[in-house]
């Protein structure tokens, strides 16, 4: 059975939650300036419960500024009840050494290393099979990392649906996989084109108007076989070829995370 989750970054969308999902992902992966408040996270948690859905809170990569925000949030979220927390920064993962018992850490897709950009190019099949095999693998294939994950209380890893395919096999490892569709992240920056204007990150904390929510950029080049989509500070590919449930379960992936919008 493949669990169906929906991933929302915008609070407005949580209010109009579609039926048909088992789980709500809420939060941000790519921008510490957009980390939801406890009020917003709590409201999303309550909305998920009202719809009979499980809840996963998503956290981004962070500086010490974000670590402080997330530390406070985890303290507060732990009071709400059982939920997953997707971790995309080893610093945030380290916070879990402190406890947060009702919160279950999940290895986010920024920590799951995959060669996402390989499949964007034209002519990739001209490379040798051994290289393509490597580009289909991931750090979560590594036995040391699997042991580390289990020792850290992590039972789930998040992955992207690579255009050139994935050979990650989690079945029997004690770790389950989630696959994000249809958008896979490629790259992220702190020089957010929506806000940068030659200013430093320090200034952005006070100046960012969050205009990344207005619309998305599409980047096309003759070198690339695929359009790159950019929302805020992060670039994505789109892959609508979603594997069958049977194939996913064979790979040890038992959850699909649908992104109706490109995440923040």
């Amino acid at each position: 059975m493949v669990e169906k989750a929906v991933y929302l970054s915008d609070m407005d969308k949580v209010g109009n939650l579609d039926e048909g999902y088992d789980r709500l992902y809420f939060g941000v992966e790519f921008c510490e300036l957009n980390i939801p408040s406890f009020h917003e996270a709590g409201k999303a948690f309550d909305t998920a419960r009202e719809h009979g859905m499980s809840f996963t809170f998503v956290t981004p990569y962070v500086t010490d500024y974000g670590i402080e925000k997330i530390t406070r949030l985890l303290d507060e979220l732990a009071e709400l009840g059982t939920m997953e927390v997707v971790v995309n920064d080893y610093g945030v993962l380290r916070l879990f050494k402190e406890g947060y018992r009702p919160l279950q850490p999940v290895f986010g897709r920024l920590l799951t290393k995959q060669k996402r950009g390989f499949g964007l190019y034209k002519g990739i099949l001209e490379y040798p099979d051994e290289l393509i095999d490597y580009f289909r693998s991931s750090n979560v294939d590594n036995d040391n990392i699997r042991r580390f994950l289990r020792d850290s209380g992590i039972e789930r890893v998040e992955m992207d649906n690579l255009i050139h395919g994935s050979s990650v096999g989690l079945e029997g490892s004690g770790i389950s996989g989630s696959l994000y569709v249809p958008y896979g992240y490629i790259s992220t920056t702190r020089f957010c084109p929506w806000a940068f204007e030659g200013k430093s990150w320090e200034n952005l904390k006070n100046m960012c108007k969050k205009s990344c929510s207005l619309n998305v950029l599409a980047l096309d080049s003759e070198t690339m076989a695929e359009t790159i989509y950019m929302r805020g500070n992060t670039q994505f590919f789109r892959n609508d070829m979603i594997p069958t449930d049977e194939h996913l379960l064979h790979l040890g992936i038992d959850r699909l995370v649908y992104e109706p919008d490109i995440p923040v």
Partner: peptide
């Protein structure tokens, strides 16, 4: 890159600047 906005024609000044 050739950069366009999504959805098309949603060319706000913020988008063009980005």
């Amino acid at each position: 890159y050739t950069i366009s906005s999504v959805p098309p024609n949603s060319e706000l000044k913020e988008t063009l600047r980005a």
